[in-house]
Amino acid sequence: MAIIKCEVFLDHLEPWLEGERRADAQAHLRDCPRCLAIVNDLKAIQAEARTWSATETDAPERVWVSLRAQLEQEGLIRDAAAVSAHREQNQPEAKPGWLYGLFGGLPRPVLAGAYLAALIAVAFALSGPVHKRVNEAKWLEGTQIATSPLRAELNTAEQNSISSVPVANSDVSASLHRNLAIVDNYIALCEKSVHDEPQNELARDYLYEAYRQKADLLAQMSERGENIQ
């Protein structure tokens, strides 16, 4: 059998690690503690790396919430009803975005709560950075005042929307409630951030975004509730 040198063995290291067993490589490894050490080290690295995949976790929910907001802002996603209408009528793309979901047609009575919440949310957003630059203290005070009725309106809209989803359809109901819980958690986090750092404009932007998502979700719940009924 030909005797191979370390350099030759190392050139065939990867096939060796993948299980290929050449006689000359085996012979070399028996007599070469340095190459044996390399093989053992690389096996140990591989073994440790493999354990990492077992502990993979989902990205935090805020990634999806933020991604969805971005997709809506860019008009890349529509709700199922809009997609269906688009397919059936083969019409040009509907005007995109969450605002279209609320204002695209005449708002039905069942959407009134979410509609109103959205209006307040928009007003809240518009009262943000512009006022802040003019009068910081007044803006901060205004923020506190503006968010209270918004929260109340969202609560009312939530009750209306939940009652519009039939209990019998447990899958839809569970899914909507799950999404609602996610957004509520997100709102709680954002409210805490704004409370802790009232001067932080980014925190206020996130809070506004969270309120907006809830209004959007409630509108969807109402819409789906009507479709199911």
């Binding site: 993979e56 976790t57 999806w64 969805r68 996603i77 199922a80």
Partner: peptide, 24 residues
């Protein structure tokens, strides 16, 4: 297919299917 038509729930489905590996 549905995501290509802009369906929001299809986007979410794809995200849920693959976010773990991408995030990792």
């Amino acid at each position: 297919r549905l995501a290509q038509q802009g369906d929001a729930s299809a986007f979410e489905r794809l995200y849920r299917l693959h976010n773990r590996r991408v995030y990792s």
